[in-house]
Write a protein that binds this DNA or RNA. Structure first.
Lengths: 157, 157
DNA sequence: GCAAGATGGTTTAATATTAAAATATCAGTT
DNA sequence: AACTGATATTTTAATATTAAACCATCTTGC
């Protein structure tokens, strides 16, 4: 579904690429989130567990930055994961402002159990693209995401 | 930032493409949403206005499907747009289950005023990719989004 | 040492979102 | 005409998210 906007070709093209990008991400996220909800996890909760699983223990600010969420939201997400005993908080003794979040053994084994199926679903969803296409998509998105994050707000006015 | 997951190359590649796709979409959406909030519009509210602006009047179900939101959410979004007098509801006289949503003149002129700058921001954000890259991204995302939406849930278990 | 500012985390208030149940309407069958 | 099932919308309850104010802690410059 192309845009119905009429304007300079450069803008039309940017708009069409944008629309398809957002739509693809939304459609895929929806499928993945449905599967995660079967484990009682939200997308952000899973994002926290995944970060800890692959990167090791992190403080809340690092998680907020990585997951592009607000600090306040991460506080609540960690609260809920703590209630499920999947993570635990540990105050940093050197700098008491920081709280390091660790996976509990229960959290660790949950991730070991569900992560393979998660990757399997992603592989299925991405499977409509061949390896060369997936690599091309990765590079294009990487450049795009990097650029967007570095762009200072004034440039967009 | 590549995945730290170790597994079959096919899965690694799918995961890396997926991560960069989601991240690019999130980063770009964040920038666009910040700009929209200056007009007092949320992403979904703008999505509704944009659909009506370019496609003409639509019923709520059509908007929900197009924007990938729940019916209940659209009811609330339309409520809020109606309060701002940007849209109006009109019960369909032939089939009274449907409610057609129209842009008001105020809504129409708002879109005429802000849409060019919106496209400008998108053009800037996408501008890190050259025309060929944008076209490639569009095609890859289109294929991906289409596939994800058509995939029946059982295939993902 | 101490004031000033920076940083990480929490709280609060408001809004957004969804799933599920409820309501209203229509279409087809008997 | 009454019943059944489908569809569009609304309501409800629960959760997610953010921005902004706030508290605690650290760092810097004097």
């Amino acid at each position: 579904m192309p845009t119905h906007y009429s304007g300079p070709p450069q803008e039309i093209q940017a708009l069409n690429a944008f629309i398809n990008l957002i739509r693809a991400a939304d459609s895929i996220s929806a499928k993945i989130n449905t599967a995660l909800s079967d484990y009682g996890l939200t997308e952000t909760q899973f994002g926290v567990l995944e970060s800890l699983f692959h990167l090791g223990s992190l403080c809340q600010k690092a998680l907020a930055d990585k997951l592009l969420k607000s600090n306040g939201n991460i506080t609540m997400v960690i609260d809920n994961l703590e209630k499920q005993e999947l993570v635990l908080r540990q105050r940093d003794s050197r700098d008491r402002r920081y709280i390091t979040i660790h996976l509990t053994p229960k959290g660790q084994s949950l991730m070991e159990k569900i992560f393979p199926a998660h990757v399997g679903r992603i592989t299925t969803l991405m499977g409509v693209l061949n390896p060369e296409e997936q690599e091309a998509l990765r590079q294009l998105c990487r450049k795009l995401g990097k650029h967007a994050q570095e762009l200072c707000p004034e440039t967009l006015r």
